[in-house]
């Protein structure tokens, strides 16, 4: 920038210094966790900041003892099911609200939007019983079904659909394309970027569920990584390095997902902000 006439030197030094200080603060908990998970039990309390001894045994123990592999698998299965269904149900209902004519449309839309205002914590109590009476405790459907539809996704996609000119839809039906054809050829391609964002949003929200899986899981085989970490926590605080190793293992897969889908992440998390 030619306009910039300020003495650049010290300014960028200050900026670097600030960046480094903030980075150290933010990385501190992660650093101590990694250090602890690489230390044998008898060394954890000494020099907690210095990686003065090294072993992979603790990570191995956490993996086998805590059955973290199974928990991660369960979380992945549930998150993928939830994401897939949320995308499909959102497209379908957003399409219906945008392009179909049917009675009581506004009423139904109001119902959808009303659900946005109900925090999940309020419904958990009753949902626990519903899922129980359906025989779905300790099942993937129990973990996933309450989250298969999202008014948020419906709203988001409808915002995009509404930008498609009505004539385009009329013309398509003239051409005999029909609604399914129009959806496939025009509507869905148009919202593809939003879908990526919504998908990642759904995936993260499902992956991070804590209260629900701890409530409806009574079999170890069906714990998710979050409820599994809770089990590990109640196991033994006298082995902090074991718990730390568990958290590292739990964090790595999602880190990989985020690195791979970094662009969708930014769009996903900001999806709500751009739409007004």
């Amino acid at each position: 920038m030619a306009l910039d006439t300020t003495p650049k030197g010290w300014r960028s030094w200050v900026r670097y210094a600030l960046l480094i200080v903030m980075a150290i603060i933010i990385l501190f908990p992660i650093y101590t966790t990694i250090v602890a998970s690489l230390k044998p039990g008898n060394r954890v309390l000494r020099n907690p900041l210095v990686p003065d001894s090294f072993t992979l045994d603790v990570l191995g123990d956490a993996w086998t003892q805590g059955r973290l592999g199974r928990y991660l698998w369960n979380s992945a299965v549930v998150a993928v099911i939830v994401t897939a269904f949320q995308l499909i149900t959102s497209i379908a209902s957003a399409y219906a609200f945008s392009f179909l004519r049917f009675p009581l449309k506004r009423f139904f839309f109001a119902i959808f939007m009303a659900t946005l205002l109900v925090p999940f914590e309020v419904t958990l109590l009753i949902n626990r019983r519903t899922v129980d009476s359906l025989g779905w405790l300790n099942t993937y459907q129990g973990l996933a079904v309450p989250f298969l539809a999202t008014a948020f996704g419906t709203f988001l996609l409808r915002q995009v659909f509404m930008q498609i000119p009505k004539d385009l839809n009329e013309a398509a039906s003239m051409d005999g394309l029909g609604h399914w054809g129009f959806m496939r050829e025009v509507a869905v391609p148009l919202v593809r970027p939003t879908l990526g964002a919504l998908g990642l949003f759904s995936f993260l929200a499902s992956w991070n569920q804590y209260l629900w899986p701890t409530m409806i899981t009574t079999e170890d085989d069906m714990n998710t990584i979050q409820s599994g970490l809770r089990l590990l926590r109640s196991s033994d605080l006298d082995k902090p390095n074991l718990i730390m190793a568990g958290t590292i293992i739990a964090a790595v897969p999602i880190l990989v997902v985020l690195v791979v889908f970094q662009r969708q992440l930014v769009r996903g998390l900001t999806a709500g902000a751009v739409k007004g």
């Binding site: 701890t214 409530m215 009574t218 089990l231 109640s234």
Partner: peptide
């Protein structure tokens, strides 16, 4: 089946 502690065991038993 480990429920995570006495409290959790009892809670889940009563809720089920």
């Amino acid at each position: 089946e480990n429920q995570g502690g006495y409290e959790q065991t009892l809670d889940k038993y009563l809720q089920s």
